[in-house]
Design a protein around this nucleic acid. Structure first.
Ligand code: FES
Ligand code: FES
Lengths: 143, 143
DNA sequence: TATATAATATGATAAAAATCATATTTAAGA
DNA sequence: TCTTAAATATGATTTTTATCATATTATATA
């Protein structure tokens, strides 16, 4: 439903949101360690995120990754969509042809309300907002 | 979070619940087609489910798979646990070391209520109950 | 402008999940 | 008891996901 790669990407974005700025870019190796993701792996993901405009980067000395205003306002869904593809979250929980209100599967019947709430939240919450919770000490980013 | 195999298993159980009985056992090939899962693959899953007492079977002529009273009262969580292992559903959505109320990650903060509701539902709903919705025409089991 | 530093592009390898294939065992019924 | 029909056990293959490795390109700064 939500891949490892997406989780790693979210962690990376949150780490950048709380630790970087345009004047304080962060290198791959300094991201990989604190979020506990293999360096070469997160490097590849970061490159993909740059291409999709979810994060910003600069090469050469003093280079690294950071988030600009635009990046900060991306939502969790934006990240998941880029990494996992669009419709993983909305697909049927029994992997039927399609998830359908008119012909709901038995799980749809009992779970779709909760699922919709989750999707709505992921759609609305920006990286910036989530990072704020960390800064306020209400949420944490260990390992 | 919830694997393909688990989904297939759930579909198989629901199919058996609505179509089989001890006097009307169903063969692999007659399960595979309607639930749209490769025959050899579902066969393997069914064998695993028999071993774990989630479904019943008999070999030889007139043999096949079916559900007894006990099987009918298994929950969706029971199936997922057997196929995917215990703690896939309760693990941290950012794959931190552990999901922890005291040191919640930013996603925990916004999503755990909905997730808990889903888990609770999966824990309570029996195959029998879900199958009933199908029989009543409130839920459907296409493909 | 030369050097060193950092991301980028590309692709190889490893591990896990999904799928396929088949010989063996059990049991019903002729 | 023989034949045949079914599950069972076992393992091979394929596909996807995760991971690792490195040559290339861009840029700050000495
Ligand atoms: S989740 Fe199965 S139809 Fe919606
Ligand atoms: S979901 Fe991350 S700590 Fe609970």
């Amino acid at each position: 439903m939500i891949s490892n790669s997406s989780k790693y990407a979210i962690k990376a974005l949150l780490y950048l949101a709380t630790h970087s700025s345009i004047d304080n870019k962060i290198m791959v190796k300094d991201i990989a360690k604190p979020i506990n993701v293999p360096k070469a792996y997160i490097a590849k993901l970061l490159q993909q995120l740059v291409r999709e405009n979810l994060i910003s980067s600069a090469r050469g000395p003093k280079g690294g990754f950071y988030l600009d205003e635009d990046n900060l306002n991306k939502t969790v869904i934006n990240i998941i969509s880029v990494i996992d593809g669009e419709d993983n979250l909305n697909s049927c929980m029994l992997s039927l042809n399609e998830c359908n209100e008119n012909k709901p599967c038995p799980l749809h019947y009992v779970l779709s309300a909760s699922r919709n709430k989750i999707i709505k939240t992921l759609n609305n919450k920006t990286i910036n907002e989530l990072a704020l919770e960390v800064k306020l000490g209400k949420a944490f980013l260990p390992l």
